[in-house]
Design a binder for these strands. Structure first.
Length: 431
RNA sequence: UCCGGCGUGGCUCAAUCGGCAGAGCGGGUGACUGUUAAUCACUAGGUUGUAGGUUCAAGUCCUACCGCCGGAGCCA
């Protein structure tokens, strides 16, 4: 009885008889020969069926196979120079498990809308495999990074009672008769985690109801948010650059084949080593002036401005000390220049935009209360948050990294919608 | 919400100045003992997004609407 193996393991079984279970990736035929490309999720291998080598039933089964039919194949693993994998299967027996109906995704090109309508099937393709494997690697590396630095995972709730920061538009839902909102950030809760564990992070989906229609926006995306007690802005920026370096290096080390499948320019990732350039908001404004931007000092940067700034460097760049007015209420201001917040954004290279936003948090009770009032936020809803400043308040900082934007940058793909299995966009809720 | 673009077989697209709706892929039938998005032959498949208008004649021109795509703003 031949052993059941995954295709990724074939090299260990050269000359031996094995059984593979999977799906038909493609079929070609030539006279009394059938070439069946079988994928099982781990790899794809060509299985060669010679009419004279198999039973009539097996050859008939091979003949009836359609794209994405499920099957079981038994045969001998043979080295072959013509194979991209280095091996192929000389089939002895083949059995169809289910003959697939006409598969909607053909081997020729399709439009994105059509493919997105068939996202549940599109996930079977080579390119999507490469992207999602890199996504997996990035998430694995992210958890590994914080776990190795003694951060404790303290997840934030997804239903929240109030329209927290008052900045972005939230999804409203009925929660047993009262209003609840889908979280736009786990940060405020992560701060409570940091006060409990010293170092904490949360990692989960976040929701923004803004009608953004760009290649950088999803309505549902994943964010990882570390928060650390006794960290000032400099500590926060160092944590962020070490973190992003780790993500990139982990992908370079473990997912090189996938990067090649996507034809990513690997040289542009190899330079991503800490320390990253760190520039004051005013320096960023100078860069924009020199490059002919119509930017108005005092504003936040637009997408085109971010691209100009990031193009000056060969690795991500951190911009810090943004004008306090354009930033959130919870950010601490610099004592020496109070018009600036102790805030920082990390811009990915090659125009991929902001991947990290973070800051040192306001830790003084009275100041924070004052900020809430200035922003017309309901004091009652933030009672628990203010508690953190009443009971052993300490300087602390944190940031949030958007997983999908990071995946888009590292994989080099142009649109964020392919970086998540089931993207949620304004016009996309199916499948 | 604003600006720009596009809607033609299942899919990707073509159709010149307004003049007989076409190709490739996919499907079906057949040929082929080394194919790599195999190739070759034959074959079926259309209310040109919707409604109205101009014209001898509209896929093509005009108006409205619907849908989708890209960008801006907002942000990760």
């Amino acid at each position: 009885m031949a052993q059941n193996i995954r295709i990724s393991e074939v090299a260990q079984y050269e000359g031996k008889e094995v059984t593979l279970k999977g799906w038909v990736y493609n079929v070609r035929s030539s006279g009394k020969l059938r070439f069946i490309l079988v994928r099982d999720g781990s790899e794809t291998i060509q299985c060669v069926v010679f009419k004279k080598d198999v039973s009539e039933a097996s050859f008939a089964a091979a003949d009836a196979l359609t794209l994405e039919s499920s099957l079981s194949v038994t045969g001998v693993v043979a080295a072959d120079k013509r194979s991209p994998l280095g091996f192929e299967i000389q089939v002895k027996e083949i059995e169809a498990i289910q003959i697939a109906r006409e598969y909607p995704i053909s081997k020729k090109e399709h439009g994105t809308d059509f493919l997105m309508d068939h996202r549940h099937l599109w996930l079977r393709s080579k390119r999507q495999h490469a992207i999602l494997r890199i996504r997996h690697q990035i998430i694995h590396a992210a958890r590994e990074f914080f776990d190795n630095r003694d951060f404790i995972l303290v997840d934030s709730p997804i239903f929240t009672p109030n329209a927290a920061e008052g900045t972005s538009t939230l999804f409203e839902t009925d929660y047993f008769g009262s209003k609840a909102y889908l979280t736009q950030s786990g940060q405020l809760y992560a701060e409570a985690g940091a006060m409990a564990f010293g170092k904490a992070y949360c990692f989960g989906p976040t929701f923004r109801a803004e009608k953004s229609k760009t290649r950088r926006h999803l309505t549902e995306f994943w964010m990882i948010e570390p928060e650390a007690a006794f960290f000032d802005l400099d500590d926060d920026m160092r944590l962020a650059e070490d973190f992003v370096e780790h993500l990139v290096q982990s992908v370079l080390k473990n997912r090189r084949k996938e990067l090649e499948t996507l034809e990513r320019n690997i040289g542009k990732l190899e330079t991503v080593n800490a320390p990253f350039p760190k520039i004051h908001y005013n320096e960023a404004v100078e860069i924009l002036k020199k490059n002919g931007s119509e930017f108005i000092p005092g504003d936040d940067f637009g997408a085109a401005d971010e691209t100009i700034i990031s193009q000056q460097f060969d690795r991500p760049v951190i911009v810090h000390h943004y004008p306090a007015e354009v930033k959130a209420f919870y950010m601490k201001r610099d004592e020496k220049e109070p018009q600036y917040a102790l805030a920082m954004d990390m811009l990915a290279p090659e125009g991929y935009g902001e991947i990290i936003g973070g800051s040192q948090r306001e830790d003084d009770y009275d100041t924070l209360l004052q900020r809430l009032k200035e922003h017309n936020l309901p004091e009652e809803a933030f009672k628990w948050y203010l508690d953190l400043r009443k009971y052993g308040s300490v300087p602390h900082s944190g940031f949030g990294l958007g997983i999908e934007r990071t995946v888009a940058w590292i994989t080099g793909i142009k649109h964020i919608r392919e970086t998540i299995p089931y993207p949620r966009l304004i016009q996309r809720l199916y499948p």
